[in-house]
Design a protein around this nucleic acid. Sequence first.
DNA 1: AGCGAAAGTGTTAGGGTAAACATAGTTGGT
DNA 2: ACCAACTATGTTTACCCTAACACTTTCGCT
Lengths: 353, 353
Amino acid sequence: MVALPDSPAQFTVPRSAAMADVAALAGVSSQTVSRVANGASNVKESTRRKVIDAMRQVGYRPNGAARALKRGSFQSVGVITFTLGSYGNVRTIDALSRRLAEHGYSVTLIQLAERSLGSISGAYNRLADEAVDAVAVLFEARLIDRVEADFPPGLPVVVIDSTSETSRFSTVDTDQAQGARIATEYLIGLGHREIWHLAGPEGSFSAGLREYSWGLTMTEHGLRPGQVLRGDWSALSGYDAGQVIARNPRVSAVFAANDSMAFGLLRAFHEKGIRVPEDISVIGFDDMPDASCAWPPLSTVAQDFEKVGDIFMELLDHQINQRDEEIEHRRVPTELVIRESTGPASIERLALL
Amino acid sequence: MVALPDSPAQFTVPRSAAMADVAALAGVSSQTVSRVANGASNVKESTRRKVIDAMRQVGYRPNGAARALKRGSFQSVGVITFTLGSYGNVRTIDALSRRLAEHGYSVTLIQLAERSLGSISGAYNRLADEAVDAVAVLFEARLIDRVEADFPPGLPVVVIDSTSETSRFSTVDTDQAQGARIATEYLIGLGHREIWHLAGPEGSFSAGLREYSWGLTMTEHGLRPGQVLRGDWSALSGYDAGQVIARNPRVSAVFAANDSMAFGLLRAFHEKGIRVPEDISVIGFDDMPDASCAWPPLSTVAQDFEKVGDIFMELLDHQINQRDEEIEHRRVPTELVIRESTGPASIERLALL
DNA sequence: AGCGAAAGTGTTAGGGTAAACATAGTTGGT
DNA sequence: ACCAACTATGTTTACCCTAACACTTTCGCT
C-alpha cells in the first residue's frame, strides 16, 4: 500500500550542525537558538548576535523535517499535473507558485506519468509519500474521478481545470464555456454561417467544454454547427486539420480550441493560397504571447491566469484555515482579443451555402 | 538570518493516524507496521495482511516529516528558477522533474521573485528553509555569482543554463555557442554576407553566448558581423526589431536568439512586404513546436532538453552518492532544423553591398 | 526600598519513524 | 533429542526541533 519503489541509494547531506551545536558554541540553550532562528521577539540583542555568529560559524541550517514534525505542517503544497507541455498548465502553475510563495508555502511539483493513470495506487503512493499540507490538482476532471477516492482524508484539495460542478472538491477554472461562446458569437456577428471547430483531444475536459459551448452557441443562434475536427493541441495537428478544411470551400470561419492549433491552420491556409481573413476567419484560444505575431496576428480568447491564481489561493485558504467544508466552484471569465485573423464573412463563401 | 516571513496562520492536517494507532489496532508493534510500510522482507504474510487492513481502517498515511527526520533525507530536490515564462526553462524543468521522479525524488519548485535578487539574504532564506537534499539552479550564471556564496555548504548543487566554466558547481547546458555557430555557418553557406543578430536581453548569459558565438563565427569566416539588435525574448520585441531591419535593404539574413523573436521578425517582414526567404532569411533558436507552423515554417536550432535532463541526473547522482568533489561542465550539442524561412542570399541584396 | 510585571533564558517533553539490538518461535541437520 | 541458524516480532533509542512551562534577572512604579 505504501511501499516505496525500490528506493534509490540513500544518502545524507552531512548534517553539519544542529541547534545543539550552535547552542554549545554560543553558550546558550538550544531553545534560544530556536528563538533566534524563528525571529522571536524576546531575545536580547547581544545574545541574538552571539547566536547568529555561531550559526554562521558552524554553517547551521534548520532541519525542515524536524520542524515540520514538530509543527505538524510542511508549509508546502503539492501541485499535481501530468504535463508541463501545455501553455495553460504552465501559466497556471506559474501563477499558483507565486501565490503560494507569497503565502509562505513552497511548491512540490508532482508530475504523474501518463501511464500511472491506470493504477490508482500509483498515484496514491506518490501522494501518500509526499510531504504536503494541501494539494492542487491540475489534471482533467474525468481522471480525478478515478483517483479522488484516494486522496488522504482531511487533506485540503483544490482542483483546477475541472468542469465538474459536482466535484467533492473546490474548483477554479477559466470559464471555458463563456470563452467559447464569445468567440463563436463574435464570428456569428461577423456574418459567418459555416463555422467549424477544431477541438482539443478527446480526453480533455476543457476541450470538451469548448466544443460543447461552441455547438450550443451555434444552435442558439439558429445555425447548424459545422464539422468538428479533432487535434491534440499541437500546431502540427492544426496543420493537418487545415488540409481538410482547405478542401471545403464553404467553411468561412474556424474556431480553434487553442492558439497552437490555430497556427497550424494558418500555415495550411497559406500553403493552399486561402487568404485569412478575406476567405476564411480563424480564431484561437489562450492568447499566447506569440499569437500577436502570427501571420496574420491571431484573434483569440485570453485567459486570466493571474485571477485563477488569486481565487485558487482564496479557496485554499478557506480549506486550510476556516476548515469549513463548504465547496465552491469558481469560474474566471475570459476576454476576446481581436486581431487580424478574423473579418467579415466572404460573400463568395456565403453564396456557396 | 533564518527568520520566517510573518508566517501565515498555521494549521495542521488532522493527523489522523500514526504508526502506533495502526500497531494497536493490528495488535503488533509499531516496528512491524514500519516494516510493512517499507516493504521489508521478513514479515509473515498473515501479519502483513492484518497490518494493511489496519492501515486501511484508520486511513494511515506515513508522516513524511518524521520519516525524513529519521532518514536524514527528504528524497526531494529543489529546483530554483526565476521564471516559468520562457520555453527553454519550462522544457528543462519538465525534463528534470521527470528524471527526478524516476529516481524517487520529488521536486520542490522554488521560484525566486526577480526583485529578491538584490538581497542575497532573500534567496538564502528561502533556500535555508526548504527541505531539500540537493538543488538544481536554473538561472543565469552572472546572478549565481552573487548568490552562490550562500548555498549551504555540503549541499549538492547542479547549475543549468550556466556558461561559466569556472563555476564552483557542476553545470550542464545546451551548447549555446555551437548552436549559434551552426546557425551562422548555415547562413554563410547560403551565400549571405550581411547577417544581423537579434539578441536576447542584456542580462541573459545564454543570450550573450549566442551573440558572441555568432560574431566570432562571422569574423572567422572573414565577414564583418552585422548589427546587433536587442530584444527581450518576446515575439513583440522581435517585431520591433523587424521594423528596424526592414528599413535596411542590405540585410540579407537575421539570426534570432530564439524562435519567439523570430516570429516577430516574420510578422514585421510580412507587413513591409519583404519576402522570406526570397528577400531575407530568418533563423531562430529553440525549435518550439509552433515553429514548424510559422509562416513560412521557421528554420531554427533544436535543443535536446531530454539529454540535458539525463546529464543533470548523472551529475547529481555523482554529487550525492560518490561524494566526489569533482566538478564537471557538460555541454549538449544542438541540431540544425532547416525549414523554409531560410534560403540562398538574394542577388539584389548582395549587389547592394 | 520593595514589589509586581515584564523581559530574557533554560528545562522538559514529546512529535512519528526506523536503525539497532533483543527476544521468542521455528526449522533443519545430525 | 539437541543445538545452530533462521525467521518473525518486540523494545529501546535517537533523529532535531519547538511548545509549554519554569525560572531568574531587570525594570518601573509607589
